[in-house]
Design a protein around this nucleic acid. Sequence first.
DNA 1: AGGGCCATGTAAAGTGTTACATGATTCT
DNA 2: AGAATCATGTAACACTTTACATGGCCCT
Lengths: 172, 172
Amino acid sequence: MAIEQTLLGLLATKPRHGYELTKEFMPETTLGDIVHLESGMLYAHLKKLQKEGWVESTLEPQESRPPRRIFSITSSGQAELHRWLGEPVGKTRDIRLDFLLKLYTARQHKPALAEKLVNEQRDVCERFIVSLREQMEEEDDEFRRLVIEMRLAQNAALLSWLRRAAGRLTPG
Amino acid sequence: MAIEQTLLGLLATKPRHGYELTKEFMPETTLGDIVHLESGMLYAHLKKLQKEGWVESTLEPQESRPPRRIFSITSSGQAELHRWLGEPVGKTRDIRLDFLLKLYTARQHKPALAEKLVNEQRDVCERFIVSLREQMEEEDDEFRRLVIEMRLAQNAALLSWLRRAAGRLTPG
DNA sequence: AGGGCCATGTAAAGTGTTACATGATTCT
DNA sequence: AGAATCATGTAACACTTTACATGGCCCT
């Protein structure tokens, strides 16, 4: 699940508690406009990250407030984060969520990684277009041609977007 | 779930048993290339359709074969099918699966309905593009502009596909 | 004898969605 | 006084995916 690696990416910058992380996913924020995340689910994800050994947590007591549970990334979590950031997504439908989350995370962390990611995704997209064109040549049925045409149209649009995006990934 | 209405659409032509329906979703078939459906899930869907009152079933004994359970659509199932076929999908990401299944089903049943569906989906798409352009004008952040540009690119591609598809929906 | 077809399902595990539960504090 | 913020979670339900379970027939 891409949301979990995105959380790892946020924790890689500095340790935080759950409530602080919910703010990154509120409406009108960059992440919040890409993916909707209820606070209940956030805590569930953090629990799972801990179970995987990718984060660890300590309780921080406060005066006149409930204690905070501060999460920090482990070295195994760092490894997982870099594995995730290093590979493009396989399926076109994952571009909308997974790829954008990868790109956001990579860009915050290391813009060069974001650019590498865009280039690799562009290669995946190009290869898929080639295979769609081959399918198209062998296809006679009109409805099946329409389906392939739709995929071609979507992937061509994504490809030209990826090309335009490549040079525009240096944060603020 | 769109698969269930697609099953209703198949049963609207004539009653069938589960195993017969699995063949419609095998690899290399039109439906099978749009959505992957394990036979286990198919039986689960049929059970759910019956629970909803959209289909009913009778057992048909056979000599030297396990009995077949024949499913047929009810009038309430017909109503549900037409409701589903009558409305375009709301979200762009649902075009790949839900909309294609609607289109396939509508086209088998009544090509004029398929054409109406394409036209309504085109309107939805056009309105969404207008709203994306408005968002784009108010946006300064470079990454958020990239996200909006991606959505614009995808929806523009879909729109032109929908326009091309409109006249090509009469089955073989 | 072995593989594939006919024909039905269940079971387990994971994922996601929605809503609720708690309770003090600070702002208007 | 009431609303929003701080801060944590649980519980119930729905849905998906994957694998397994059963067992005879037909063809080579």
